[in-house]
Amino acid sequence: MAKLPVQFRLNGSDRAGFVDPAGNLLDLLRRGLGDFAPKYGCGQGTCGVCTVLIDGEPQLSCLTLAISCEGRQIETASGMADGPNLHPLQQAFMDNFAAQCGFCTPGMLTAARALLAKNPNPTRDEVVEAISGNICRCTGYEPIIAAILAAAAGGAGMRRA
């Protein structure tokens, strides 16, 4: 099958690859570019572990055609920390013991990051709504909700999201 070129910015760096016309962004990020932060959980857009930001919007990379990302800004959980300094959401997830197996964590952090960028002081219901597309099988969600609220209270949303 003929491959098509695609180029975008990933976590602030220019990246490019060749993809099948029907290839999804998740496969390109993981297998093509070696960013293993987004995970495969269902391939059907039902679990949220592949969540990335495309031009600041949370998107399911398993349902996103890779070629549709030409020229766009893609951000994953790999790029959240500022060098050695954790993003306040990352710190809040640690402080609140919001990760157990850790498999849903990159997608959860990304969904939360998108929320706080738009809504720096969300209510609990708004946090719940924001992560309602992300499945966690370990924690029962409560520590994740607490972590996002704590990060917001600490001013995380005021920073560069």
Binding site: C42, Q44, T46, C47, D125, E129, I135, G140, I145
Partner: peptide
């Protein structure tokens, strides 16, 4: 067959514990 059909409580369905 998938998470649309296999039901589990979401973050909005949890109870104080």
């Amino acid at each position: 067959r998938d998470f649309n059909e296999y039901l589990m409580p979401g973050p909005g369905d949890i109870a104080p514990y």
